[in-house]
């Protein structure tokens, strides 16, 4: 039966079923992509509020799960656009914007030895996925808000970089420079963590 044909009780039943079936997956996705759990909870809740309000537009041919995930991804993109614009720095623990950049390369653009990727042995190659993943999450949380937002947006919009640049209000050059800086910071931070007790 199309959603439109349902009465209020029928709609509530249908939506409650979706909440029970999909909240866990949506929440796991959201929690792995934002810094704190409360924000992830709120984004999932907002997802269902939007779904509830636009239930008539839900096309029967797409699965509720796909539909809900696409709403959640929009909420995450909105969240990161806002974080980017505000550029807020919540804790003094974060790496500053320029700290790594100034030291990573020598003035003529070669790796500074203390910041260079180690090639042999390559700490990444000798570390299992689970440990790398833990290091990544830790290091993502240390990124300055603007860089974190640029990185997260890249993986939310299925790599439509023009849409991301428009959403963040930055030029193409600025966007990939930020991704480069973010990657340099993440790489160095992960290498430091996995090398420490390896």
């Amino acid at each position: 039966m199309p959603v439109k044909a349902l009465d209020d009780v029928g709609r509530q039943k249908l939506m409650a079923g979706w909440v029970h079936s999909h909240t866990n997956d949506l929440l796991r996705y959201a929690r792995s992509r934002v810094k704190d759990e409360a924000t992830a909870d709120d984004l999932v809740q907002l997802t269902f509020v939007s779904a509830w309000q636009t239930m008539d537009k839900f096309a029967e041919q797409s699965s509720p799960r796909t539909w809900l995930f696409s709403i959640l991804k929009h909420k995450l993109a909105d969240h990161y656009r806002k974080v980017y614009r505000e550029g807020k720095h919540l804790s003094g623990m974060e790496l500053s914007n320029d700290e790594v950049d100034e030291n990573t390369f020598t003035p003529n653009g070669h790796w500074d030895l203390a910041h260079a990727p180690t090639n042999d042995p390559d700490a990444f190659r000798d570390t299992d996925n689970e440990r790398l993943d833990r290091a990544l999450r830790h290091c993502l949380d240390l990124l300055p808000d603007k860089l974190r937002s640029a990185v997260e947006m890249k993986y939310l919009k299925e790599r439509d970089s023009e849409a991301i640049q428009a959403a963040l209000g930055i030029s193409a050059t600025n966007y990939w420079q930020q991704l480069h800086r973010a990657k340099l910071k993440l790489r160095e931070c992960i290498q430091g963590r996995v090398s420490r007790t390896a």
Partner: peptide, 9 residues
């Protein structure tokens, strides 16, 4: 070699 490692990482 350092940049090759960068690409992999």
């Amino acid at each position: 070699g350092a940049c090759r490692a960068y690409v992999r990482q």
